[in-house]
Write a protein that binds this DNA or RNA. Sequence first.
DNA 1: ATATTTTTTTTCGACTCTTGAAATAAATAA
DNA 2: TTATTTATTTCAAGAGTCGAAAAAAAATAT
Lengths: 417, 417
Amino acid sequence: MNAPADSADVRRRNLGLVLRYLDAHGPCARTEVAVGTGLVHATVTALVAELIDRGLVAEAGSVPSAGRGRPRRLLRLVPERVVVLAAQVSLESVHVMAADFQGHVLHRESAPHHAPYGDPRALAAVIGCVVRSAEAAVRDATPHAHLAQLTVAMAGPVVGPAHLVAAAIDFGWHNTDLRALVAVELPLLDCPVDVVNDANMAALAEYHALAADGVEHPDTVAFIKADTGVGGGLLVNGRVHSGSHGMAGEIGHLPIALDGPDCRCGTRGCLATYIGPEPLIHAAGLDAVAESEGGEAALAELDRRLRAGDPAAVDALEAAGHALGAAVLGVSGVTDAGEIILGGYLATWASWLRAGLDARLAGRRALAPDMQPAITFGVLGGEATLRGAFQTCRDALLDDPTSVPALPRTPVTVPSP
Amino acid sequence: MNAPADSADVRRRNLGLVLRYLDAHGPCARTEVAVGTGLVHATVTALVAELIDRGLVAEAGSVPSAGRGRPRRLLRLVPERVVVLAAQVSLESVHVMAADFQGHVLHRESAPHHAPYGDPRALAAVIGCVVRSAEAAVRDATPHAHLAQLTVAMAGPVVGPAHLVAAAIDFGWHNTDLRALVAVELPLLDCPVDVVNDANMAALAEYHALAADGVEHPDTVAFIKADTGVGGGLLVNGRVHSGSHGMAGEIGHLPIALDGPDCRCGTRGCLATYIGPEPLIHAAGLDAVAESEGGEAALAELDRRLRAGDPAAVDALEAAGHALGAAVLGVSGVTDAGEIILGGYLATWASWLRAGLDARLAGRRALAPDMQPAITFGVLGGEATLRGAFQTCRDALLDDPTSVPALPRTPVTVPSP
DNA sequence: ATATTTTTTTTCGACTCTTGAAATAAATAA
DNA sequence: TTATTTATTTCAAGAGTCGAAAAAAAATAT
């Protein structure tokens, strides 16, 4: 933050600029990179040379240039050069994904963790085990890859530069240094370990998924999702804003009604008491199903009833839409998010939520039509969190491509005299 | 954002680093600056030389160093070198303040603007007139000063890099380029003109005022104020986050009750319908006073009654405290602000609000004691907005000290041979 | 077949910035 | 006076970007 700047900073930034350009615009020539980034040809030559050294970029043949002239030598990203590991800790199991730099999944693995409540060490051991196995599998397949980072996403606020898990309610933790615990389990894994909030990751992933589909995002974007719980995230300029306690986006307890239902959190009228799974199940008259077959089954049944047009189910979602509308107004009022992405079953059931949601937004809409936040719907479903953890690794690498070491010099076969 | 980096960027940053250090730590020697900033002695010498060239820093005598050794040559900021102009447009008048780099007020001036509703040009003319007169007064007094910036704060969202005033409800504007209009009025004023949101400026000012008193701020801070209306601001790392439409902090319309009172904005249950001046006056039974003597007088009367212990007044504020508590929970839930600064009469009447506020926060407090946002109270009152506009100029200068030109070279008297 | 034109890429010298080591300056203590 | 200590400056080196010129590689014109 207040460290001196340096020519190395300049280099890092410009390397990232070139890498981002190649990533976004596919294989292209140095000239195009120069024009696209605003750098001068000479500099692009130098930067590309370094990226080639580090194995992040390779030449990929020539194409004839327009009309006559020297043909363009195409440059392409080498996604295989980098492998990242993304892990997600859910209530009952650990999921790990290994992917290359462009997100091609190289390996997936899951394991139940049976972590005893209050014992992060046991969980770290399971994480370590799964990650180790995933890493081994990948390392065999792609021997030259650089392992860039492991990012572990889990429920609960993650705090500060030390990435302490401040309070994982589901696991009974308090100020746990999960990162250190995992690192202990993985002494041989020679890469940085990151611990992040899962909802924030989902937000990041949906943001990028929509951007890949051509959606232009405003600079401030909020994300609200509901599945097993209600959470969210706040993105500023495409980066996660995690707030003072890593809790930005712990939106489930946004108060939307002064005298609403009591909430686990101790207050009342929280958003989660309107759009969370339990209240929806209750409103749709599915308490019995939840009781006998569990919450997952009840939600599945709710989905069936919605599609069948069951009035209680439809009404439940319209009411939820209203509450969601209040939350959207609240979030957009506080953060001025220009877009709000809805994820989890809020995306799945978008068509049933829309009525209540739009009704609630209509009032405000009258005031400043062009200032309404755009409402979009996530497309990643359960994949979002892992994809977001992956994206975090990617961003780190694009911010500092020098973290990837130079390739071992290929021995030049000198023609004997 | 995605422009190439450059050695000039490095210079700018490091000049700013040195300038900030001298600003924060008072006169001190180059060695101390080097240690404090992490720069090397040689670099500090060069940077200081440039700052002296630009007239921002001057040598200020020597003090003996600890024990023996060459004495330290102290460096001091030259606040007089820079003059900034801060303007505030309120409903009825324009206020302008000229200050030096450290905020010493050089001149103040106000004028009623009688701006006809919907005519930004007339208002721009008044602003121009006041600014011109202020500038002339200051320029006479301090002939060598560099006029760095004019920042105009006004109610209403301010959008994007063009600083368009998107929708100034009070003035009936829509997407007005007030900056251009003011610039037209001030063709001779050779400095950048900025237009910003007034509540955001108040937030910035209170932030710095508290920091000057030794308060350590968390990285995310929210500000909520009420006086003639309800507004606020969001600060991330000490910088204003204005959101996608410059509306971050238009918090008056945060919905806190699903079925609350109707609001001007078209929805219902907005924060402003609970803690705004009209509802408070009404709840305290002062409608008649407001009718006959105006809102200002009614608020003054409310203040008297509070201090006299009038039950209706006290109850009104306790209820407002409750609503405010809900807003605080909402804001902190969405943004994870580690601190929430309350300003305007929310600060003045802190002691009467606390009961309701704390009651509302108590529930949440039980969940995560160390994650509660700290509640602090602004100290600047009506001065906040102008001070914030000033601070914006200051930040711009600290971010790029090269915007201040070199002093005209003092003619060296060559001894004739 | 050769020269010319066009486009892409690299090379080279100039300039700026930070750095580390050495030199200089200015005091005190012996 | 001479050594010691501390603060500051000087100087050469290293790393970056930039602009102009040169080189490379094709297509077209002669």
